[in-house]
Design a protein around this nucleic acid. Structure first.
Lengths: 200, 200
DNA sequence: GACGTAAGAAACGCAACGTATCTTAGGAGC
DNA sequence: GCTCCTAAGATACGTTGCGTTTCTTACGTC
């Protein structure tokens, strides 16, 4: 299969490996993902992978980063609730069963490999989300639905934390009722509380 | 070592195994915990463990449940903030590095063994916490710090989710500043927001 | 005192780990 | 266009832990 073929190098090879890792992830899931299988699927061998990534977790994070879609602007749906629901739904859509199980697995391995913890933090800290939330809140303020308020870092990170906890504990997919409850029972009250503190 | 010894049975043996599992957990951590080591430490053998628990995760959850301390009543510290800080600190104290890494590991395995997911959910859903929070909020209402408000289920679970996410992403131990930020930036605004919605 | 259940010990095959060794393809430089 | 050197790709290795099987024997029961 390889004798007459060309031998890939650099970025081309790297991308092939990451794509193979992603495919394996989708098919067998994180707990059953093996480096050997990724190597085989990518048409290469284990040492090639180990030369680039020190652990399965690091490899998977790299594959994940490659797939992370570009941030899209938040549409103005006419109300704070609708905007938030749109955002929560969009996050939930990308956090399917495979993704939850992968994140859980990577989180578990982060304790063994400190460098993985850093990668994971970068991956989850999500500046794009912060910007989207900022826009949504600004729009709500412009509409008169909300007083202006500063959004602390942990508030910006909260949607991801909420959805991730929910997904891991309750299993995915998350129902619309669940998303609505998170928006109505937690996030909107929080924003109102922050605004009251700040603006009044 | 065993020839002249007594051969344990039933509860006695079970407790010995769970204690050994807990000790291993404390010493080597979840990722490095092996059934073999637990068996050795408990002075028994692998099949004896496998006869009782189907997986490492189930064993660890059982050991954890045995250690879960009794719920203590919330003291009235004189202010909502102080009460919440007390509660968050108390949770954080019990969620040391070992515990975070264990929870993360068990969460990761929950996907492979659905029955583990149920055990985990039971373990984390924490009715005691709900009662403590109820008391704290009641006291704040009595003091006039807060309007009365209903606390939805997800709000009751939020402290655990917040602290767990923080512990897993940032590593333990959690600093006092972190705990204060979670209380001041997230939880108190949320309570105020809920109260405003409800009472006004 | 005999019986049956389950404890305990040992060994198994399996799978994946992470590494070391070796050959060879292919890009860089003169 | 030839040489050199880096890194790809293949293979095999020892190790570890899994979960299971088999067997002996202690102990509680009747």
């Amino acid at each position: 299969m390889t004798d007459t073929r060309t031998r890939r190098r650099g970025t081309e090879l790297e991308h092939a490996i990451l794509d193979a890792a992603w495919a394996e992830l989708s098919e067998v899931g994180y707990p059953s993902l093996t480096i050997e299988a990724v190597a085989k699927r990518a048409g290469t061998s284990k040492p090639v992978i180990y030369r680039r990534w020190p652990s399965r977790a690091a490899l998977v994070i790299a594959a994940w980063a490659r797939r992370q879609p570009i941030h899209e602007a938040a549409p103005d749906q006419g109300s704070l609730r609708a905007d938030l629901l749109w955002l929560f739904t969009r996050i939930a859509t990308r956090m399917d069963a495979m993704m939850s199980q992968t994140i859980a697995g990577v989180m578990a391995e982060a304790f063994k490999h400190p460098e993985v913890q850093d990668l994971l933090r970068d991956r989850l800290d999500s500046a794009p989300l912060a910007r989207t939330l900022g826009t949504i809140v600004e729009n709500a303020v412009a509409r008169g639905e909300l007083r202006p308020a500063a959004l602390p870092r942990r508030v910006l990170r909260l949607p991801l934390d909420l959805l991730r906890s929910e997904a891991i504990l309750c299993g995915t997919p998350l129902s619309e009722e669940t998303l609505a409850a998170l928006v109505d029972d937690v996030y909107i009250p929080l924003l109102k509380g922050l605004a009251a503190d700040h603006g009044h």
